[in-house]
Design a binder for these strands. Structure first.
Lengths: 139, 139
DNA sequence: TCCTACAATGGACTAAGTCCAAGTCAAGTG
DNA sequence: CACTTGACTTGGACTTAGTCCATTGTAGGA
């Protein structure tokens, strides 16, 4: 069963059919879906679920820290259920697909104090951009 | 006079009043403006300039590689005239302000071939997130 | 000066997401 | 089990950021 679902239940989440299907959709995917893709898959399991609910639910999961929001471009945000392992992203410039990657090194350490301008730096995001094998083939 | 303008002219750009003001706006700013902010400043110099033209012109400058497009969140894209010196960005999570930073190390080198999944990786963006001194003070 | 291809215009359109008032229902209480 | 209540869901209107396109204007060469 769903780990994600267990964790959410453990946090006192009220369990509804809608939330269940959203959690299941995310949990079952190893790619990063957009909210609309999540909605499309959720509708397949529960036809009357609304877009607003999908947005609400995703937003709550992000707030709870169970899911990461990734916005690599002007297109739709994508949701990453792999919130418990630090990683970066490899994005296809053509189709927008995202993969998780685990590079060596700690980029936070690469930012010397002299370059911090008084900011309290708490996080770093690294986005590698390129063309995925799929898009390269159909170029 | 404007360096940016000179470079664009040198590339055979047709010079129009609209393009001139857009280039001047970008060139004069050391913060990173959104397209709408660019438009607002452009209108101050040339009241009849249209939004579409500002978008077109910014897009062309990005294509020519004279300006960088930065989208650090779901809000509007920002335009960075400092395209000729590689740098990363330090973003305030509260107010959205952006500063350029120049960290040590080359993150591209940190992505081993085994983590590239067949992608042709051509660029890397690093975004440091934190709270700027200003926002920290008024917290 | 005239031509013409390139550029500008503005209004309609789209995509992604937010907001809200009204209806529904999960789960605790008696 | 039935009741209650506040949390959850709904769908449609709205917003923001940006794109598209047919028409009109104009820079710069002949």
């Amino acid at each position: 069963m769903s780990d994600l679902l267990e964790r959410l239940r453990g946090r006192g989440w009220r369990m509804t059919a809608q939330r269940r299907v959203v959690a299941e959709v995310l949990d079952g995917e190893h790619v990063h879906l957009t909210a609309d893709e999540v909605h499309a898959r959720a509708v397949a399991k529960l036809p009357e679920i609304s877009r607003a609910t999908v947005y609400n639910t995703l937003g709550e999961m992000v707030t709870l820290g169970e899911v990461l929001e990734v916005s690599t471009d002007r297109r739709a945000k994508r949701y990453d259920p792999n919130a418990h392992r630090p990683h970066h992203h490899l994005v296809c410039a053509r189709c927008g697909a995202i993969r998780d990657v685990h590079p060596a090194g700690d980029p936070l350490a690469d930012l010397p104090a002299g370059e911090r301008f008084g900011f309290t730096v708490s996080a770093v995001e690294v986005t590698y951009r390129g063309i995925c094998p799929n898009c390269a083939a159909t170029a």
